[in-house]
Nucleic acid binder design. Sequence first.
DNA 1: GCGCGTCTGTCGGCCAGCCGACATCCGCGA
DNA 2: TCGCGGATGTCGGCTGGCCGACAGACGCGC
Lengths: 256, 256
Amino acid sequence: MRDGRPIDDRQTDGGEAFRSVEAQHTPSKFLTRLTGPDRAALAALAASRRVPRGEAVFSAGGPGKHVYFLESGKIKICQPSPAGNEIILWFCLPGEIFGLAEVSHGGGRVVSAFACEESLVLSLSQKDFREFLATHPDTVMLSMQALSSRLRVLGEMVVNLVSDDANTRIAKLLLRLAARYGKREGGIVHLDLPLTHEEIANMVGTTRQTVTTVIGQFRRQGVLSIENRRIQIESEDLLTEISQAAAPPAKHRPGS
Amino acid sequence: MRDGRPIDDRQTDGGEAFRSVEAQHTPSKFLTRLTGPDRAALAALAASRRVPRGEAVFSAGGPGKHVYFLESGKIKICQPSPAGNEIILWFCLPGEIFGLAEVSHGGGRVVSAFACEESLVLSLSQKDFREFLATHPDTVMLSMQALSSRLRVLGEMVVNLVSDDANTRIAKLLLRLAARYGKREGGIVHLDLPLTHEEIANMVGTTRQTVTTVIGQFRRQGVLSIENRRIQIESEDLLTEISQAAAPPAKHRPGS
DNA sequence: GCGCGTCTGTCGGCCAGCCGACATCCGCGA
DNA sequence: TCGCGGATGTCGGCTGGCCGACAGACGCGC
């Protein structure tokens, strides 16, 4: 199809830069951005729960009656595959809201939320959440930002999955995880995520053995190292090079 | 990980059925669900634009300053791959809102919106849209529903892409498109979507030739037929069987 | 501190489907 | 109505990576 001219977005502000992936895709730190009074109102409404490591906050197939906020710990949001593998879609870090996708249509859960480590979670019934939004208008944008951010994450995953070979998919996954969850110290990015090779394979559509092979190659190339089965990216630049090296030519691209 | 018990969602309502995919994933028909006064207020604020077939409403990389509503026509939302292929993420039908993911963080566009056929589009600046939400609280849930619905669509795509072989991915894509956009007449589902084999290939991560081969097989099996280069699903049941036939066993599944 | 279950590392045969190429068809715009 | 550019249909050589199997390592719970 021809490259079209945008309609109303066509006037661009001079010098407005496209934001980095990190800034663009950071999900709403809902709790952090609540003002004092809003935060107090939420705390008065919500129930607090401790979730042990490995336990589910909610499960796919169950009812979706509550919205959750992560006080501390780490949550992974998974969708089951037909074969029963749990595909990790994204992680939630402290401050983030989750489980709100069902608020608007009142349906059951399509995804599960598991605690990767012991976590402290606030829960609010959907009814109370709707009332909270209605009486705290600032929180509407925070909720929409959480949903939008995750929409972009999944969009990136889709494009990655349909476009790239296994090597590149793994490289790009690691870069995305680094951008969103990495802790940076002197040029090295620590991924404080308890990810097995099987979980990585499930996220990028390959096999556990292929991930083991590729991660081993990345270690030998000095791209990353492993400590306590956690990945540390020694050179984001090298990983970026790897992820761009195998770009295939466009089929059916005007001007190709 | 062990199957966890849900925390606050664990009490289920007796007999509450998990809704069908069609009901669950129907995006918010925003315009249709607006009440008369809300609709009039929106019409007073928004600008109307006619978009010829093939033109972009907005483009990836451009600024995201407006929110759009589709009065008539058909829009496809695409994200460019590194090779320059436009990957269709979803379609928008009349009544739907689109282009709102950038409202909450004010960033540039990651996706493009193209008119598949001549379309009539309302546009509203983000600023006006925020004010509209603030003064029309019913529209907050409609907006969140649109975002949530698309989140689920992309989640399904991700799980489909990482789990299935090419044959199954194509079958499931056709079923999803049928559920969301199909017109049903006497057991046959018409997909009134102008999709080429190349576009289908881009959506499921395969090649144009593989899609041509698989679509040909489906025709010979009586699963579907083609008219004016539009797919008609003759037997959803058969297509569903095909999409379930190749389910691989779970790796690392407790109890497998 | 120790044992164990899970995770990682390796191997090689096999095949799903990629890909370049070419012929034919047909929907759309003038 | 007609011409043409894009879409569809087919082919077969080739290869990326799947997969079952096995050995060794190690993180975690007791």
